[in-house]
Amino acid sequence: MASDNMRPVYHPAGHDNELRAAVQDLRTGRWVSMRNLLADTPDWALWTQRTQVLATVAAGSDAVQAWLSEEPRSVAALVMHTRVLVERAVRAHREGHARTQELWQQAWEACGTAARQAPADPVPWVCLLALSQLDGRQRLEEHRLAPPGPMLFPGPWALLSEADKRDPYNREAYHRMLQFVYARRADGSLSEAVNFVQWAASSAPEGSALHVMPLFVRVERYRRENGHEKALDLHWVTEDATRDALRALQLWFDHAVLAEASLLDLNQLAHALWGSLQFEAGARVFEALGPYYVSVPWAYRTRSPGDAAQAEDVFLRARARCLAAARDPRGGPDG
């Protein structure tokens, strides 16, 4: 049961206790827990999520390289090595590092090797999608293929299709495609992003995290506005915004395995329900979050989006409002 006074905590592993233990060991340079965790990971969706988190932690060390050197025939080690190289290339691109092109090439080659060695694994294809955002001008042919439907854009559709074959509606694959949309133009065409997430969610089954994606695009739209908090306050009480929030609740949250749910998705949904005054429904999501939170999108409701303390304060106020409505339904508009 969530408490109004419980301080929020950020941890990349969220509710995944086994992943949290592996992350702790990885931060000290130990890789055996990571190997054992991945060996026991039961499905591609969780595999994708766990390898992504582990790569963000391992990118600043040589722990994965040590594992691969110790067990050169390990396919899991090879996939994690690819993950780390891709993470480093994406970071270098974001920071405008002089070695970006070199790191990109290394990562791209590693993706090809991993795809051949692990033909059933969606992660090498997800990694190629992650690298596609480095090609904002779409110079590579594989990044400007014709789209599968109207109102969509030329892009790396074959890469998305390969990931989809291996793990249909893979959450990270579609979010990487969304990042490509933002990167392909200087203004990161938001109309194309809206069309993409609506297309993606339209065919996704119940329980798929793709139903949350429209909420991400709505926040991105208003992130780019001046006066973030005012724009968001006005935006979420509109009929279509409320509809998006409730659809994500009904089609994703009500059917999802919440123990494996992305903290990003849970925070986006909690924020959208609170913003659209659906306080009782929001309380359910805050209960599922427990002590865990991420600063986005809460930071965009502050005067200083880079101030973590302000973001935490907004999160706490939203949680308190929703939990209060759940205790006294007569006090909320959705009661």
Rank of each mutant, 00 (worst) to 15 (best):
Q278K: 08
Y222I: 12
V75G: 10
R83A: 14
Q49R: 15
L232S: 04
H228G: 15
L152C: 00
A245W: 02
V86P: 04
D254S: 15
E71K: 09
Q198G: 15
V32C: 01
R139C: 05
R284L: 07
A209I: 14
R171K: 13
A173E: 07
V79L: 04
E206M: 13
Y174C: 12
A66M: 06
Q133C: 09
P156W: 00
P119N: 06
G227K: 03
V197I: 00
A326P: 00
A311G: 14
D244I: 04
H93T: 05
E109I: 11
M213N: 07
P42K: 01
V194K: 14
D334L: 12
P119F: 15
D43L: 04
A98S: 12
E172M: 13
P154I: 01
V126G: 03
M1P: 06
C111D: 03
S33T: 13
W199Y: 15
A130H: 10
A256W: 08
V197W: 01
S189C: 08
A309M: 10
H97G: 05
P119H: 08
Q49N: 10
D240V: 13
A281T: 04
R243G: 08
A63N: 08
S203W: 04
R321S: 09
A45E: 11
L323N: 06
A311N: 07
Q198W: 01
G332S: 13
N17K: 08
V53W: 00
A22H: 00
A320R: 09
T28S: 14
Q250G: 04
Q24W: 13
V90A: 02
L277R: 09
E18K: 03
P72W: 04
F180W: 14
R88Q: 14
A261K: 03
L178K: 14
L38C: 03
E109F: 10
R301S: 09
A325K: 00
R321V: 05
A245V: 10
